[in-house]
Write a protein that binds this DNA or RNA. Structure first.
Lengths: 223, 223
DNA sequence: GTCTATACAAGGATAGAC
DNA sequence: GTCTATCCTTGTATAGAC
């Protein structure tokens, strides 16, 4: 059942794999076609242009990620848990992409460069990406707000600014791990989660360690 | 004097401008040539290939940035000052590139995507980028070490991990500002510097505000 | 739905005149 | 040092047969 995927989906999968590894511009339709055992013109039966493939890849990617984040946030109620769950969700998503693309999780995947390139393609893609970050920011602001009401999070912080900071911290980690061999998400995230929470928590909170029991991953892996 | 720049330098400048705005692959040698008023084959008198131009751009960029960081770090002795100076240096560098490329500083520039793309080009470029991050990490570890000796910085922290975190925080900020319109370096950095120092400082340190008197920048600017 | 054949444009790169 | 002319390759995309 799951083996019998449509040609259209095969094209999308192969495209995404190639886009994320060698980049959009180095990915020719010929390459995509060859990798799934068809000829180039067949692609045009399923998609009207390369741009349409790119658009569909971005949409699928972000729809999926947003959906997973929703599911994950709904299973937690405490602000610290929710923020860690959000981070884990984003990391897991990249880890999954890494496996999709390289068949193992030790090679890092960098979505930012892909998005950056996509934005040149068409204004609608730019809007979709902007909308993803906006959704993320809104979720974070809501977590921060309810955390403040519960007395778990500092009242003094600027939620607009802090929410952006929270996004940029996890993305910074992921990006750097794609550029610099000494940067490993898996080694960094424990410290990340602790310093993030230290900077958010209300002063009188008792210190707790490791709210989330996140999967332990062997250290050879980048994620 | 400064107006009479060589054709070789003109090519490099125009190339960098185009690489950083529309990307390496969208930048044809024809485009570069036209933008400085020469014909495409003339480029080949100065460079043997497009790849050589890319390599020179990356080298010049990173040599310049590393040099500025050295100069800036030498004018400070306190760990907090040094870390903020390093951050300011990186931000100023991007701001300068933004002006070079767009003639104003409100458009963000993202070096990471450029580097990411460059790394596909040639292993030597990858090594140069890796070397930049390594240099940065070594500098940060040295700052952290001397801060610990002075008693200004927590002894408990893992310098390898924290130095990576410090790099990824500033890069995360810069990257996000290129992808998401609500993210503005200029609005974020004050909070960044404070939470960074809060997470590093030894417990008994007296609280000081704003060690560095960084230039105030009007808020319409992205940097 | 997939193929062969082909149109058409654009890119990197070289030869050789001036 | 810069040009015109040209080569060769590769890319996106379409027409039309099977």
């Amino acid at each position: 059942m799951s083996k019998n995927i449509s040609t259209k989906d095969k094209i999308l999968k192969a495209s995404l794999q190639s886009f994320l590894t060698i980049g959009i511009d180095q990915t020719s339709l010929n390459l995509i076609a060859e990798s799934i055992g068809i000829k180039k013109p067949s692609i045009y039966y399923h998609f009207k242009s390369k741009e349409e493939i790119i658009t569909r890849c971005v949409d699928n990617l972000l729809d999926d990620l947003e959906h997973r984040i929703d599911l994950s946030l709904n299973t937690h109620t405490q602000p610290r848990e929710q923020i860690e769950a959000l981070y884990e969700c984003i990391i897991d998503f990249h880890s999954g992409l890494s496996i999709l693309v390289y068949d193992n999780s030790s090679q890092p995947v960098n979505l930012n460069s892909f998005f950056q390139r996509c934005m040149l393609e068409h204004p609608s893609i730019q809007k979709r990406i902007e909308s993803y970050y906006h959704t993320l920011q809104v979720k974070l602001i809501s977590i921060l707000s309810s955390g403040q009401k519960q007395g778990a999070i500092k009242n003094s912080l600027n939620k607009e600014i802090v929410s952006i900071d929270l996004i940029s911290r996890i993305e910074g980690m992921i990006n750097l791990s794609a550029l610099y061999s000494n940067a490993h998400i898996n080694l960094q995230r424990q410290g990340l989660y602790e310093t993030v929470w230290d900077s958010l928590k209300a002063e009188q909170q008792p210190k707790k360690k490791r709210i989330l029991d996140y999967k332990s991953i062997d250290l050879g892996r980048k994620w």
